[in-house]
Design a protein around this nucleic acid. Structure first.
Length: 427
RNA sequence: GGGCAGGUUCCAGAGUGGCCAAAUGGGGCGGACUGUAAAUCCGCUGUCUUUCGACUUCAUAGGUUCGAAUCCUAUCCUGCCCA
């Protein structure tokens, strides 16, 4: 199966330039995707481009990961409602380094291989281009009419917030990236989310007009939840690939909690399982949906890919203790070292033993441990029936928490809502 | 530079002197039901606080008034049209 066929059944092809498939059949092709250095870690929204590069490499082609040091300074306006905040250069550089380090974990950069992945940063070629030079040599080839006709731009022009020249020029910058890579790295393919189509086409157009060359591209549909809401956010915000921002347990939970509908699509998009295997998993899932066969497999595959097998196993174990058959009693029977390990992914809090010995009321307990920022909020949660300690629902705000709540002599397990656990350690 | 229309709580969007912490919808959070799903229903949703109440909000700074998101002045920002 060729790359495009593979991506097609996975539902990962939206738009494609004519001839792309033929080009990929013909020879080993270098293709690239850009990553914005908007934060110091990638998040699961970036997982799609990573998967694209991965598939490209598996199909024998050469992936280029472009970190947008230059484009990040400008900000992509495509389909956005308003201009985003500018990051200072120091932050951008820090972000670029972090992202680079992450990408290295997911692609094969072994230089011995002919299709080894490579990393490039567009800041490297933009830093030496002057403004005059750019508008003369690059801007000359693309008309404003052409640029304004893009849907991605129209939205902003017709919107309420306008669009700065800086943002408007974004597509030229991204377009020039492609032109540059076409010349320097013999890059013939650009991939990206469907929101990038406009920018990508500007690139191929530039290659055609400026150099008379031919370059290809395809885009992947943007991942959304079945209910149309944004993908990749949880209550706590973004789901990051960096374990110190989103623990492997939380990461695993994110995938486990998705709906049946989403899981069916996502297992195609975010795992490398083949078509047969996926259909049999779905079939099995449908026999007893309560077993979470589909979500579990999805969560396992993705967590293992991002965090590795060991972290996955710990995350699964944590899940078993908190939600599964293993109860609090089982957790209590673990050694201290094991408790720490198993609970590592769960939100942590501390309290002093002295405070507990004296006994404190629940609300103060919740604020002192910083589980809640204020008593008012803790009270609200309690009144809503959303608060429990050691798996027992707290019903009275007069409840006094003292040393008798400790298990293994140092832990208290607090839950806010059904899904959010906090392990309190007494010191 | 000129004319016009605007800037309201997470978002959309009401409110044009007291009844406004501010309608309604969405989103978020919590609960019931379930499968840690979906749908549905219920509660909460400025901050702090034991229902009382206190404090800070309606672009910013001043002013009028017993009292202002609402009126006045200046400033900043945005859109549209004209130059």
């Amino acid at each position: 199966m060729n790359l495009i066929e593979e991506l097609r059944w996975r539902g990962m092809v939206q738009d494609m330039m004519p001839g792309t498939e033929e080009q990929l059949q013909k020879e080993m092709t270098t293709g690239y995707v850009g990553f914005d250095p908007t934060a110091d870690s990638l998040h699961i929204g970036n997982l799609v481009p990573i998967m694209l590069l991965k598939h490209l490499q598996r199909a024998g082609h050469k992936p280029l990961a472009l970190v947008g040091g230059a484009t990040g300074m400008v900000g992509d306006p495509s389909f956005k409602a308003e201009e985003r905040k500018m990051l200072d250069e120091e932050t951008l550089q820090h972000n670029q380094r972090c992202i680079k380090a992450q990408l290295e974990k997911y692609l094969d950069f072994d230089p011995a291989k002919p299709n080894a992945a490579e990393m490039v940063n567009n800041y490297d070629w933009f830093k030496n281009i002057s403004f005059l030079h750019f508008i003369r040599d690059v801007g000359k080839h693309i008309t404003v009419n052409y640029m304004m006709a893009k849907d991605s731009v129209k939205k902003r022009i017709e919107g309420d917030n306008g669009m700065s020249f800086t943002e408007f020029s974004y597509q030229l910058i991204q377009g020039y990236d492609y032109y540059h890579l076409y010349n320097e790295k013999n890059c013939r393919l650009q991939m990206g989310g469907s929101d990038q189509w406009g920018n990508i086409v500007t690139g191929t157009e530039m290659i055609r007009r400026k150099g008379g060359g031919e370059a290809f591209a395809f885009t992947c549909p943007l991942v959304k939840k079945a209910d149309g809401t944004k993908f990749g956010k949880s209550e706590k915000g973004n789901i990051w690939l960096d374990a110190s921002k989103t623990t492997p347990y939380e990461f695993y939970q994110f995938w486990l909690r998705c709906t049946d509908e989403d899981a069916e699509q996502w297992i195609k998009t975010f795992t490398f399982l083949d078509q047969n295997e996926i259909s049999s998993i779905i079939a099995e899932h449908n026999l007893d949906k309560g077993k979470y066969t589909l979500q579990k497999r999805l969560a396992q595959e993705v967590t293992a890919f991002i965090h590795g097998q060991q972290e996955l196993e710990l995350a699964m174990m944590t899940t078993d203790f908190l939600f599964g058959k293993l109860s609090l009693d089982a957790l209590k029977s673990l050694s201290d070292v094991d408790v720490k390990k198993v609970m590592a992914g769960v939100q942590q809090a501390t309290i002093t033993k002295a405070e507990l010995a004296a006994g404190i009321d629940v609300l103060t307990f919740m604020t002192n441990t910083q589980i809640f920022p204020s008593k008012g909020e803790a009270r609200k949660m309690l009144q809503n029936g959303g608060l429990s300690i050691n798996t027992e629902k707290v019903t009275a705000q007069e409840l006094v928490v003292d040393s008798s709540f400790l298990w293994n002599d140092k832990y208290i397990l607090v839950a806010k809502g059904k899904k959010n656990y906090v392990l309190v350690t007494a010191e």
